[in-house]
């Protein structure tokens, strides 16, 4: 064993998603490191690592809570910076839902590529490695000059579908053209049919007209997407699928951001269920929305941390969900 192996995993949790951190820590059989994180009266964030991280392999788990994205991001940067100054050997930022992932291109004149900015900020703060789940666009990996492990929720979704439905009754539906690849991949694994909804989107978070491509008649239509934000798209898509004769409609989404009136929209929709992973802290949303179900993604993340630390391949996780 090299000296590389002598150091230990230090798991540091940001304030945004302590439940996920606890689950990952439990899975790894270690404790979350003691830290002090607080806001001054002028809302500046202050952070102190409560135990030595010198020469340790540090993993910082920080999701971004809906509505508090900047708060979470700044805290993450400050934690990284604190660990860097405290002589950590390697700092891995575990960011289950990458913030600003949708602002990844200059789609209008002078539009900021905020995702690249975030990537640069993380590296400037001192991150040596990034672990994330279902990046909105895989190209974001190219914004970094450090390694990025983009984990997939797909294996967990596949297992969920196999456990709860007969794949032959299902049709996998992508709510937009951009997500077609993700949906076809699941359909291929399940060997089921595939459909696509084409939509016109005049402005962000506003949904225009929708057209279904493919057949969903008398089938369970499963919408697949990477994030559910205001849920406008999903709900409209579900209505279109119902109109086209789907037996029932459910949605499998990695990041349940669920901002604005998402919960009310969902409760009043014809979606029978929305299944999300716990990459984003959901708070009381599960109680408020009986249609919301959660798949635990922590085994995948914990396994990625273990493999990264031990220098093993992470590829296995792209096709298998650890039990």
């Amino acid at each position: 064993m090299s000296a590389e192996m002598a150091n230990e995993v230090k798991l540091i949790s940001g304030r945004s998603h302590p439940e996920l951190s606890d689950k990952i820590a439990k899975r790894l059989g270690i404790e979350v490191a003691r830290t002090i994180s607080l806001n001054y009266s002028n809302q500046e964030t202050s952070f102190t690592v409560g135990e030595s991280v010198r020469d340790e392999d540090v993993f910082i788990i920080q999701s971004t809570a809906t509505g508090d994205v900047n708060e979470g991001l700044m805290e993450l940067l400050i934690i990284i910076s604190a660990c860097r100054t405290a002589s950590a050997r390697r700092i891995t930022a575990v960011i289950p839902n990458f913030p600003y992932a949708r602002q990844d291109k200059k789609d209008k004149s002078r539009a900021p590529i905020s995702a690249r900015l975030v990537a640069n900020m993380l590296q400037t703060a001192g991150a040596n490695h990034i672990v994330t789940v279902d990046l909105h666009a895989s190209q974001i990996q190219g914004f970094f000059s450090v390694p990025v492990d983009n984990l997939y929720a797909e294996p967990s979704f596949l297992r969920y579908i196999r456990e709860n439905f007969n794949p032959e009754d299902c049709v996998i539906v992508s709510p937009d053209a951009g997500g077609a690849k993700r949906a076809t991949s699941i359909a291929d694994h399940l060997k089921t049919a595939f459909a696509l909804i084409h939509k016109e989107r005049p402005r962000p978070n506003v949904v225009g007209r929708m057209v279904l491509v493919g057949s969903v008649e008398d089938k369970v239509a499963i919408l697949v997407d990477d994030m559910a934000d205001t849920c406008g798209t999903l709900v409209k898509a579900a209505a279109v699928l119902k109109e086209n004769g789907a037996k029932s409609v459910l949605a499998l989404v990695t990041h349940g951001i669920l901002s604005g009136n998402a919960i009310e929209t969902l409760n009043g929709s014809c979606l029978s269920a929305l299944i999300v992973t716990n990459t984003v802290p959901l708070g009381d949303k599960v109680e408020r929305c009986p249609k919301l179900r959660v798949i635990d993604i922590s085994p995948t993340i914990a396994e990625a941390i273990r493999r990264t630390h031990n220098g093993e391949s992470v590829s296995y996780l792209f096709t298998h969900a650890p039990v």
């Binding site: 102190t48 030595s52 934690i79 910076s81 703060a125």
Partner: peptide, 24 residues
């Protein structure tokens, strides 16, 4: 005000912010 390591393993956030501005 966070311009130095006030405690063990505290962050020098002001320096980080300076770097972030540079990166932006």
């Amino acid at each position: 005000r966070q311009s130095k390591k006030k405690s063990h393993r505290g962050a020098i956030t002001a320096r980080m912010l300076a770097n972030l501005l540079g990166v932006a």
